[in-house]
Simulated assay, not measured.
Amino acid sequence: MDVLSDVITVARTGRPVSACVRWHAPWGQQFASVPGSVAFQVVLEGSCWLLSPQATPVRLGTGDVLFLPHGSGHTLADDPATSATAPACSPEDPELSESYASDSVDRSGCGGPVTVVLCGAYQVDRSRTHPLLLTLPDLIHLPADPYRHPELQAAVRLLAGELDHRRLGTGAIVPALLDTLLLYILRIWLAEQPARGTTTGWAAALNDPAVTAALHAIHQNPAAPWTVAKLAAEAGLSRAAFARRFSAMIGQPPLAYVTWWRMTTAARLLQETEAPLRSIAVQVGYTSEFAFANAFKRTHGLAPGSYRRKR
């Protein structure tokens, strides 16, 4: 696993939900803020407007992608002047949104121009959310560009086809395509950041070969007895230069990140497997179950056994 793949794997909980929604003008739909989720909207056909009280309306065309890494509330409408209906979801709704709850929804209106939107959302475990997701802006808009983003457009077409025509295997294909779509969105956004002058943060870190090499080493083998010197060797830098660069970009020292990743990995194993505590301790670099339990409680506020029972 690489860092970007792990960002999705460790945070996601439950099954993602998605739907193709067909709106007939005039229409307007509010989407409430849902903490603990990530969501996206892709315009498959027609056009619409993204509306926010704090910003100028943004016109969205066919192929445009919206990504909301913090589940922020937003409104889509056929025209900025159209009144929007009540939110399609509430923070208490475990299904995230009734618009996402089925494979195809037809919002028949007055027979006006049609807009088709691919909606999707994930629930995430905020206790395991990777810092990369936490540092993303509330909304990322990727305008349609088949020449620059052909893989993203291909994933969109495949996902839309599965949602429009359910067949054998759709239940397994859709979650995999949602993962693929989300990874393409993140990959594109991260790749575009250096051109905007980003010198710190996760976007800069994942475009820095030295820091990326160290991160991959940590993620691939969290149980290794990492020291700053060993990680600096992975990065091909001196110990001091590596520590400065890593801390500036990631926002915490190298060994603090190692501990965070070990405890995050342990939390996922406790929730998703029945592995004994001793086995999990070894997998994340602790030869003593007692030392592992103390480190886990400092991070998560619960002993490993209590965390597993609660989850």
Rank of each mutant, 00 (worst) to 15 (best):
M1V: 11
S5K: 10
I8N: 05
T9F: 11
R12T: 15
P16K: 04
V17R: 13
A19N: 11
C20W: 01
V21P: 00
V21C: 12
W27H: 06
Q30Y: 04
F31V: 11
A32H: 06
V34P: 00
P35W: 07
S37M: 03
A39R: 15
V42N: 06
L44H: 04
E45K: 11
W49H: 13
W49Y: 15
L51P: 03
P53W: 06
Q54Y: 12
P57M: 07
P57R: 06
V58Y: 03
T62N: 11
T62Y: 03
H70I: 08
S72A: 15
G73Y: 00
L76T: 02
A77P: 04
D79V: 10
T82P: 03
S83V: 14
A84S: 14
A88S: 14
P91M: 08
E92R: 11
E92S: 14
P94D: 11
E95V: 09
L96E: 00
S102W: 11
D103F: 12
S104W: 12
D106L: 13
S108Q: 12
P113S: 10
P113C: 07
V116G: 02
C119Q: 12
A121K: 01
Y122I: 00
Q123G: 11
S127T: 15
R128I: 05
H130F: 11
P131S: 04
P137D: 08
L139G: 05
L139E: 10
D145W: 09
R148C: 10
E151K: 11
L152T: 02
A155H: 08
V156T: 14
R157Y: 09
L158Q: 15
A160S: 10
G161H: 09
V174N: 00
P175W: 02
A176Y: 07
D179P: 02
R187A: 14
I188Q: 00
E192N: 09
R196M: 11
R196L: 12
T200C: 07
A203M: 02
A204H: 03
L206I: 10
D208K: 03
V211K: 00
I218F: 05
P222D: 07
A224L: 09
P225I: 05
K230L: 15
A232W: 00
A233T: 13
A241K: 13
A241C: 08
A241Y: 09
F246N: 01
F246H: 07
S247A: 15
G251K: 02
Q252F: 05
P253S: 08
A256Q: 14
Y257V: 01
T259F: 05
W261I: 07
M263R: 01
A266V: 03
A267L: 02
R268Y: 09
E272I: 01
E274S: 13
I280P: 01
A281E: 01
V282R: 13
Q283S: 13
V284W: 00
V284L: 08
G285R: 02
G285I: 03
Y286K: 06
T287S: 14
F292C: 05
F296K: 03
R298Q: 14
G301L: 09
A303F: 09
S306T: 15
